[in-house]
Computed example of a mutant assay.
Amino acid sequence: MSISDPVVSLNVGGHIYTTARSTLTRYRDSMLGAMFGGDFDTAARDDQGRYFIDRNGRLFEHVLNFLRTTQLVLPEDFKELRLLEMEADFYQIQPLIEALKTHKARLETGPCDVVVLSHRHNPYHPFSVAASNSRVVQTRTGENKMSKPDSVVSLNVGGHIYTTARSTLTQYRDSMLGAMFGGDFDALRDDQGSYFIDRNGRLFEHVLNFLRTTQLVLPEDFKELPLLEIEADFYQIKPLLEALKNYKARLENKRCEVVVLSASGTELSIAASSSDVKDVVNGLETCNPYRYDDNEMAGLLGRLQDKGFTVQSHFTFRKEITHNALTEKWVLVRKTARKSLDSK
């Protein structure tokens, strides 16, 4: 940063940052590079004259750290990787997108790192870096959705201050926020002139993220789903309510533990949905797996039911037509503790 490098003040979703213009324009083909490199004639500003960007202000810290250092360094317990990927995609910072892919690959593959260098005909980024990944990360072209005439709105939600665009709040016109900021009724303001909503300000971050992206992305260790459902219901954002319903259903499906017992002749085999569940079954089994009888099987089934498993299906079949012995199979299911759904 030279002495002539101008200092820029940013308001990103209500979070204030100050940085050098050269930092923001490090990658000229990114959205920030275009915005502060002179490619945008006019950029939205808040009432203090700061450049305004209607995105997640808390996660912008990691974006700005990368722009300053060209390195991706996240906290060890970072749980919002997918949401940060969405932010990087919005800003179209290709090296950050690739660094996140590499970071995800390391998390998935452990100590084994695979790096692929590709040459690109781009004067700002002649090389791209990618890494092995078991999932394909789809990116789409970022766009600056907020047009100049769109007004900037300051919100005080239960003491938490947010800044966003009016068009974001009115995206769903049949919601409470759509009516509130669409002119259908007057809104209360605090002593600083911010619109005041007497609701949970911390959880409003997830509501606002959804309004900005139309996607529900929650931290991996999120434990306040019932509270967030209450907030979504208050704001009457139907797509968010539906997304929460689907999210909850996915969690329910993941929380099923399955045990399959197969008895053929005098031999018993056990399969389970995870090694932990298999250990539970092995700890309950007192019969010889190679010489079982009906009484021992009944005892094992009873002990599994005492542990919360229920028999979902039981059937008998013959593996081969020429094979006289019948095979009996039991499928037992147990739902695990739902801490993230029951926490207050």
Rank of each mutant, 00 (worst) to 15 (best):
L244G: 00
E205T: 13
L203V: 07
K238L: 09
A131T: 06
D89Q: 15
T213I: 05
Y172W: 13
D279K: 13
T141M: 14
N144W: 15
V8H: 06
D47C: 08
Y235G: 06
D233G: 12
T141G: 03
A88N: 06
E85K: 15
S175F: 11
D198I: 04
F52A: 08
R212D: 05
V8G: 05
P6H: 12
S273Q: 10
R26T: 15
Y17V: 06
R318E: 11
G142A: 00
S343R: 08
T69Q: 03
F315Y: 08
A298M: 12
H121Y: 11
F210A: 10
P6F: 03
G37H: 01
R21G: 06
T42E: 10
V12Y: 05
S134D: 13
H125C: 14
T139C: 09
F234N: 04
H160C: 11
V217Q: 12
L326P: 11
G14N: 12
N156V: 01
M180V: 06
P123Y: 08
A20H: 08
E224N: 11
S167L: 06
P6N: 03
R50M: 09
Y17I: 14
G49V: 09
V12I: 15
S128C: 08
S128Q: 09
K104C: 07
F127L: 15
V12A: 08
L24V: 05
E143D: 10
P226Q: 06
S154P: 05
T214M: 03
Q305D: 07
D279A: 15
F234W: 13
D306P: 01
Y91S: 14
E285H: 12
L244A: 05
L261Q: 01
A99S: 09
L208R: 06
S154Q: 04
L177Y: 02
L301W: 01
S147H: 12
V217E: 07
T19N: 14
T19Y: 07
S269W: 00
A99T: 04
D29T: 14
E85G: 10
T322N: 05
K101P: 00
L300A: 04
R28I: 13
N253G: 13
Q71P: 06
I93Q: 02
E224G: 07
S30P: 00
Y195Q: 07
F222K: 02
A243V: 05
Q192D: 05
G33I: 10
L284G: 07
T69F: 12
